[in-house]
């Protein structure tokens, strides 16, 4: 089928022309690595730690693009395309609007993987970081966190009454998660009370999972984060699928 590749190419071009994701999903995480690397160098995460502070932050920084795409980009584009009746227009063609949504999901997944590649390259080449854990386990965790965050975004974008409401909800979800889930401000430097509040944010659990996978920490600690991610993905994804508004 030629439909999907052509839609993907065009929508990707439009998205890149928009710049937002270039800045927030691709540049910002790399800048974070540069700052963390410059400030902490190869200092250990804590006295006697076997991994560096940068390695400890790797999972968190690699989640920035997932958060930007899933919780900000996706809901905005879905509500925008519904508000402009672009989705409705697809109903009167031989292609279904679900195709356009699949294209958008693919675009944000591409951003996330591109960001992961850039962050990995910057951290390993410039600051000599090494992935202690299994790359396969990390990729698996990354996919799970992505599916979970994207289903939150699909829920917001699919059900919000209009673009304004989607924008407001996306901001309410995005900014606290970006700042307090450990994606930018390292979780480890937060005071205990703040950590406990942060634990309530879904992305915090996702980042714990990524951290455990990247550092090769024992598997016992990750049952809760895995459960939270999986349940979120099922519930939000299911509700979004069931109650999606085409117009």
């Amino acid at each position: 089928m030629k439909t999907f590749p052509i839609l993907l190419k065009t929508e990707l071009k439009l998205s890149l022309r928009g710049m937002d994701m270039l800045i927030f999903a691709l540049c910002m995480p790399v800048v974070m690595v540069l700052i963390l690397g410059a400030v902490f160098g190869d200092r250990p995460a804590y006295d006697g730690a076997s991994h560096t502070f940068l390695a400890q932050s790797f999972g968190a920084v690699s989640a920035i693009a997932i958060c930007a795409g899933g919780v900000m980009g996706l809901p905005l584009v879905l509500s925008d395309y519904r508000g402009k009746k672009i989705l409705k227009r697809f109903w009167v063609t031989p292609t279904s609007p679900a195709m356009l949504i699949a294209v958008q999901l693919t675009i944000y997944a591409l951003y996330a993987f591109a960001s992961l590649a850039l962050v990995s390259l910057t951290a390993t080449l410039l600051f000599g970081m090494r992935l202690a854990g299994s790359p396969i386990a990390f990729l698996g965790a990354y996919l799970l966190v992505m599916v979970s965050m994207f289903s939150i975004g699909a829920l917001v974008g699919g059900l919000a009454r209009d673009g304004k409401m989607a924008g407001a909800l996306a901001s309410i979800l995005y900014f606290p998660m970006l700042v307090f889930s450990g994606a930018t401000l390292p979780y480890e430097v937060m005071p205990p009370l703040m950590q406990r509040i942060a634990d309530a944010l879904p992305l915090t659990q996702g980042i714990k999972l990524l951290k455990a996978a990247s550092l090769g920490l024992p598997a016992e600690g990750v049952a809760l984060p895995i459960a939270v991610m999986a349940i979120l993905a099922l519930v939000c994804g299911g509700v979004a699928l069931r109650f999606f508004r085409w117009e």
């Binding site: 030629k2 439909t3 672009i86």
Partner: peptide, 18 residues
Amino acid sequence: AVQERIRVGELCQMTAAL
């Protein structure tokens, strides 16, 4: 309405792809 920033040629190509 159409996608923001889309060009005439892109819109034609995209529509044809459907």
